Simulated scan of single mutants.
Amino acid sequence: MGKKYNLETLEIVVIEHKLEGEELNCKECGEELVEIGIKSKKEIIKYVPAKLIVE
């Protein structure tokens, strides 16, 4: 089983954590930080069950 299944048809959700305000500046020198890459990339498969609603 495992990753042998074709997951290309699944919806992909990308989660980005952006720094804002004071977090954008280095605590040591005060210079503005720049993005240098992705620290972690992982894929999690989540099951979202169908829901019933009344209109």
Rank of each mutant, 00 (worst) to 15 (best):
E11S: 10
K4E: 10
I15Q: 11
G37V: 06
E11D: 12
K4V: 11
V54S: 15
E23F: 01
I45K: 10
I45H: 05
I36K: 09
L7H: 11
E28C: 07
K18L: 12
I45Q: 06
E22D: 13
K27D: 12
L10F: 13
S40N: 13
I15Y: 09
L52V: 12
V14A: 09
E35C: 13
E23D: 14
K51I: 14
E35K: 05
I38R: 05
V48N: 09
V34H: 06
K42Q: 11
K4M: 07
E8V: 01
V54F: 08
A50F: 04
E28H: 10
E32D: 05
I15N: 13
I36C: 05
E20M: 04
K3V: 03
K4D: 12
V14C: 03
V13L: 08
E8D: 15
L33V: 00
E32P: 10
I44H: 01
E32K: 15
I53T: 13
L7V: 09
N6L: 00
M1F: 09
V14S: 08
I44P: 00
K39N: 09
K46I: 14
I38K: 08
L52F: 05
L33G: 01
I44C: 02
H17N: 15
E8M: 09
V13D: 06
C26W: 07
E31Y: 11
I36W: 03
E20F: 02
E43W: 05
